[in-house]
């Protein structure tokens, strides 16, 4: 099973310019570990010292914020995983 991970411009300095890639990650932890293994320079920016995913890193599965789906949500074939840094806000 494959999913596509989309990497925003700001992160690409740590990915050698790679914009997207396919992998067989099955859930959130798996995809973050895969990113860290594949792009070691990106690794320290994905999790904090306690191993928790950094709070200003937003991850979407297709169009849904992964926090609504739950950390154990299982990806499906063809899912689009999008990383968005420190999202903007209003008031």
């Amino acid at each position: 099973m494959n999913v596509t991970v989309h990497i925003p411009t700001a992160f690409r300095r740590h990915t050698g310019g790679v914009e997207k890639f396919e992998c067989s990650a099955t859930n959130l932890n798996d995809v973050v570990d895969t990113l860290g293994t594949r792009f070691p320079e990106l690794k320290p920016h994905l999790r904090d010292q306690d191993g928790k995913i950094r709070r200003y890193l937003n991850i979407y599965v297709n169009d849904e914020d992964i926090r609504f789906l739950g950390a154990n949500h299982l990806f499906s074939e063809g899912d689009e995983i999008t990383l968005v840094p420190s999202i903007a806000g209003g008031k």
Partner: peptide
Amino acid sequence: YDQVNRLCSQIADKHRWGFVNVNLR
């Protein structure tokens, strides 16, 4: 709004527009 916001982050990443609450935040 949260979906609009995410879209704008992605647009600001690609197009040279001055988003007051994204790249000018």
